[in-house]
Simulated scan of single mutants.
Amino acid sequence: MVLYAFLLLLGISLAGGMESGIIGGKVSKPHSRPYMASIQVENKHHTCGGMLIREDYVLTAAHCLNRSAFSGRGNFEVVLGAHNIHQDEKSQQRIKVLKYIQHPKFQSDNTEKDYSYDIMLLKLKNKAKVNKFVKVMPLPKKNGKTPANVKCSIAGWGLTTPKGVEGSNVMREVTLILQENSKCKESWQHYFNSERMICSVSDGKHAFCQGDSGSPLICNTKPQAIASYTYNGSCVNKTYPQVYVKISHFLPWIKKKIG
């Protein structure tokens, strides 16, 4: 059985749905996260989050490209400097994506996907103009360990309730607590890789949800991971931790690709 089917049977929801979501959080202070990107498809539909890591590169989740919504890749755009993504704010920069660079180990023979490699670079057609609304987020410098019980935050545009239908117009953020790797492994079995992944546990009220794939998990002001997947049907499920791909593990790959 391919991994995707197994994930659905387990109840995993890939967090990059056409709805987006931050559950139990608060509205972000406008432009307080100038590195954030809204990845959009035709008709300006937000589908994933991302992070500006160089003027011409955004880091996000690899599975965002595999969704049916991305069949029209020519309409794939990144919006930077946004607070309200349903308004044409003067601070916004809308830039088309020139090239998609999925990690080569994410997908094998178009069948089984390894979500411990759920990471992708987007090469922008034009360089972003760095200003007070749009800034590059420096990557972590080395592959270090992120301890459990640390409070981290994640932001995005979307659902404010687990069973909502439409996402929030404005960026929202939530604080989450990292879970021990052993407990992540216990829940997700061999689909959780301790070397390449970390996870957070929901208290039943706070979580990231569909549409926040690719959004960076920020711990102590530094980006530590990229949101990958959560539990299907209830993003605030307490039994199954929410899973992220560690950025630090992929630093050599990222640096090789962006030069």
Score class of each variant (00 low, 15 high):
Thr175Leu: 10
Ala207Asn: 09
Cys48Glu: 04
Ser215Thr: 09
Lys183Asn: 02
Glu55Lys: 15
Met120Ile: 04
Ser32Val: 07
Pro140Asp: 06
Gly211Lys: 01
Tyr57Trp: 15
Lys26Phe: 12
Gly81Glu: 07
Thr175Glu: 10
His45Thr: 04
Gly16Asp: 15
Gly144Phe: 00
Tyr244Val: 11
Thr111Ser: 13
Lys127Pro: 01
Leu124Glu: 03
Val136Phe: 14
Phe133Val: 02
Ser91Thr: 15
Ser116Ala: 13
Phe250Ile: 07
Ile95Ser: 06
Trp157Pro: 05
Ser13Ile: 04
Lys113Pro: 00
Phe76Trp: 01
Asn237Met: 02
Asn193Gln: 07
Lys129Ile: 13
Tyr240Thr: 08
Asp88Arg: 04
Ser91Ile: 08
Gln87His: 04
Ile12Met: 12
Ser13Asn: 09
His86Met: 05
Pro34Tyr: 02
Ser187Glu: 06
Gln242His: 05
Gly167Thr: 07
Val243His: 09
Ala82His: 04
Gly204Glu: 02
Gly21Asn: 03
Ile53Arg: 00
Met137Lys: 15
Gly11Phe: 10
Cys184Arg: 10
Lys127Arg: 11
Leu121Cys: 09
Ser187Asp: 02
Gly158Ile: 00
Pro30Ala: 08
Phe76Thr: 06
Ser194Val: 10
Gly259Glu: 02
Lys44Ala: 03
His83Val: 00
Leu52Glu: 06
Met171Pro: 03
Ala225Phe: 05
Leu159Ser: 00
Ala37His: 03
Gly167Val: 11
Asn193Met: 08
Gln179Asn: 14
Phe70Met: 14
Ala15Val: 08
Gly156Val: 06
Gln210Met: 13
Ser194Phe: 01
Val2Gly: 10
Phe133Gly: 03
Glu77Val: 14
Val165Gly: 03
Glu19Trp: 09
Ile12Cys: 15
Pro140Glu: 01
His249Arg: 12
Pro241Gln: 12
Glu89Met: 15
Asp212Glu: 14
Leu8Asp: 10
Pro252His: 01
His206Ile: 11
Thr146Phe: 12
Met171Glu: 13
Gly50Cys: 06
Glu186Met: 11
Pro252Trp: 01
Gly164Asp: 04
Lys127Phe: 07
Lys238Gln: 02
Asp56Ile: 02
Lys105Arg: 09
Glu19Tyr: 08
Val150Cys: 04
Gln87Ser: 14
Ile85Lys: 04
Gly21Trp: 04
Val27Asp: 13
Thr47Arg: 07
Tyr240Ser: 13
Ser248Met: 08
Glu180Lys: 15
Phe106Ala: 01
Lys26Tyr: 10
Thr161Cys: 03
Val97Met: 01
Asn75Leu: 14
Ser28Leu: 11
Leu7Gly: 14
Ala155Thr: 01
Val165Leu: 13
Ser71Lys: 15
Gly21Ala: 05
Pro162Ser: 03
Asp212Pro: 10
Ala128Phe: 05
Val236His: 03
His206Glu: 12
Val134Cys: 07
